[in-house]
Design a protein around this nucleic acid. Sequence first.
DNA 1: TACATTTGACCGAT
DNA 2: ATCGGTCAAATGTA
Length: 290
Amino acid sequence: MAMRTKSEMSPPPSDQRDAVIEELRKGAQLAECLRQQLELIPELGRRNAALANVSNISTTLSSSVSMLQSDREQYSYSSSDARAASYAAGAACGGRRSGGGVGAQNGAIARTRKARHRRGIHGEELPIKGILTETPENDGFHWRKYGEKKILNAVFPRSYYRCGYSDEHECPAKKHVQQQNNSDPPMFIVTLFNDHTCSALFPANEQLPSTSNSATANSQVLDFTKASLSSAPGISRLKKEDGAGLSVTVPSYTYDELSSYSSLPLLSPTEWKMEMEIKSFFHHHTGGGS
DNA sequence: TACATTTGACCGAT
DNA sequence: ATCGGTCAAATGTA
């Protein structure tokens, strides 16, 4: 997860970053040791709660390693970074190799398609934002899924979404969602492409009328209603079990905005608390170097 | 019935 | 030939 924003500090030298990565890996190993110890807790409730916490810590540490590795690239995340991160997660889980693409089934339906122009791929499309989240749908926008693909060396498939207003208002916004791991809740890498042009027509406060009165100028309401729920495993579980829509209000700062507000967390309150605990953990184990 | 999702086929890049 | 990204018919859901 975004331990620190880029603008908060100058980019560390490569060897220093490698040292940080190594420390994070040690932390992940320690977390695994701790997990094994927690397995011995007799009380089921306490054991499960502790295991869940350790699982989240492991996830955060692994994600941090992935992000630091990704930082070698030009931007915070790219699709290839996501692939690398997924590969790391897959390796940790004994990941299998995909044969690439969805399995081909011999032509029950023979479709002849002439070459057609592909939307949005005229010119180079660079990701504008990368987010690691457990709730990939919660950005206040309406998305429509248009594809899913097994990615080489990735355990989980990548889902492709475009803005729900891409047709009506030619909004070019797209995003890729790729599950990172199988923790509870699972983490996802969301890579955003192109800014929403529909956002001027449908400001966040107006996209979900039922909550517009409670949303402030600096917040937006997360959309758990059907329109925004994807087929991601964790989300589908939510959809089935909860039935009715669920709304949560969170700050609506973008990743880039957060980068300029050095101390603002790009995390849910729970994640932020966890990160503070991890920092405290490393503070004690590394002699408190600042 | 309308709309969203699923999924095999297709396409361009490598 | 392989891969990631997209299309669009088939299917699911309310």
